[in-house]
Amino acid sequence: MKETFYKLFWVWEYDKEEKWLNEMAAQGWALSGVGFCRYTFDKVQPGEYTVRLQLLNQCPASAESMGYLRLVEDSGAEYVGRMMRWVYFRKSGDRDFRLFSDNRSQAEYLGRIQRFLAPLTVANLGIGLSNLCMGLSLPSAVNAWCGCLSLTVAAFLGLGWRKVWQKRCQVLKECDVFE
């Protein structure tokens, strides 16, 4: 049996998204496909699957990423699908399923997410400010509204970046004692 859910997670909510997917798995719905705001699930035993999502270094179709996806599959997980550079995996019967097994590589990965969010934040900030400036000198309010929208998105992206940064600081502190 399959079921499709529509749900929106912003890019800075990847953590929340993974948590939700695992809550679904705990209730017996294992992710089997992803699309834009669309999640398809298989009916399985509650708690059978653990789901992980990951931001890849390169496009999933590149040779490097293909080699990586194969390795994850070799290790017993299933590749479920992708949205841009984000890929989704699920693994049966392994509650300990992780993609990073030491603090150092975990910190490096969080740095990758920061580098992904930073340019998006700056771009939205720039677009927002220039639209706002333009809007204030024009009779129509369209530009000003678009500017406010971009600035709001930039603020959320910035907060998301900060959350990842804080998490990375925690992991790096742990690195001082344990690798």
């Binding site: 080699g67 997980a77 992780r98 990073f100 590589s105």
Partner: peptide, 24 residues
């Protein structure tokens, strides 16, 4: 890659389980 994972897990009696992202 997967051969490395298996061998390390075997050598350490299951203590060290390299995750795919860390290994890659």
């Amino acid at each position: 890659g997967y051969g490395i994972m298996q061998t390390v897990e075997g050598l350490t009696g299951g203590r060290v389980r390299l995750a795919a992202g860390t290994l890659y």
